[in-house]
Amino acid sequence: MFAVGATVAAASDGDGGGSSASGTSSRAPGRYSPDAGFARDMAVHHQQAVEMSFIVRDRTGDEPVRSLAYDIANTQANQRGMLIGWLDLWGLPKVIADEPPMSWMAAPDGGTGGTGEAGEAGEAGEAGGHHEHGTGAAKPGALMPGMATKEELAALGAAEGRDAEVLYLQLMTDHHKGGVAMARGCARQCATPAERALAQGMVEAQQSELTLMADMLKQRGAAPRG
């Protein structure tokens, strides 16, 4: 918990004193900035990964899969706490009803105009930028690219043993691919150093898990979907 609190604090203090060495403003990110959009969207994305991981732990006795599920659930729950903590710290909403998921990835300036007063102006003036998706369309029934549908979650909850293991690994592979694309967007566009660092860490960790899951699927005579 201390590590989470320290990281959240770093998002506020890392730019202190008006401007940092990188030239980013110490003002809180704007409502539609990449920093805020990523925090909102990845918090939702992570929540589903946690949900799927808890489902599969009850559907199989296979220790490698259960261990992977525990690691993913623990890591992503902690990261979700950081993201929500930043939104609270910045005084920004966790949900914006009329904001399309991942629309922040279309921001033309990487979010530098999305802080402070410029960010507030962006609420009225970003209509062309923040209504476009940055990483391709989600599949029908899914909120964001990589996310599972309600039907897929129900199928996971009904499966047992090897079937549950394979479906979980396939769903989580898709989920990680969507998460990696989004995290790369923040690593490029977010203005908050601590958030960029977290996003880059997500990219590296989830790419490593993608390799592991491909091997686990092969061991079970299966392969990633698509």
Rank of each mutant, 00 (worst) to 15 (best):
P93S: 05
G119K: 08
E209P: 01
V56M: 08
A191D: 08
M213A: 02
A3E: 15
Y32G: 00
A187M: 06
A49Y: 03
E209D: 12
G30E: 04
A148Y: 02
P29T: 13
V95G: 05
T75M: 13
Q48W: 12
Y168R: 03
H131Q: 09
V166Q: 05
M172G: 01
K177Q: 13
A6R: 15
A77G: 13
A9P: 09
A142T: 09
E152R: 06
T173L: 09
Q170N: 09
P93L: 01
G61H: 14
D41S: 07
H176F: 12
G185I: 04
I55A: 02
A28V: 14
G119R: 04
E123F: 11
V95Q: 08
A9W: 14
A154R: 14
E126I: 01
L167T: 01
G113W: 01
R66Y: 07
H133D: 14
W90M: 06
R220F: 09
A21F: 13
P93E: 05
D15A: 14
L217G: 03
A194Q: 00
G221K: 10
A69G: 11
Q206F: 04
L92A: 09
A158V: 11
D13G: 14
A154N: 12
A28M: 13
Q207D: 10
G18M: 12
S67D: 15
G81Y: 07
G110F: 01
L198F: 07
L68G: 03
P193F: 04
M216S: 04
R31M: 09
P108N: 10
D215P: 00
F38V: 01
V4T: 08
G91R: 07
M182N: 01
V8E: 04
S53L: 06
R162D: 10
P101L: 05
P140V: 13
T149V: 11
L87W: 01
G146H: 07
S12W: 13
Q79V: 08
D13T: 15
M216Q: 04
L153N: 02
K218H: 14
V44M: 12
G91T: 11
R184H: 05
K177F: 12
L167G: 00
A39P: 00
A199L: 03
R162W: 08
V56E: 06
M147H: 03
D71M: 14
E123N: 11
P108F: 11
A214D: 12
E195F: 05
A21R: 12
P34L: 04
P224G: 08
K94N: 15
E152I: 05
A199T: 01
R184N: 07
L210D: 03
R40K: 05
Q189A: 09
P108T: 11
G111P: 00
Q47N: 15
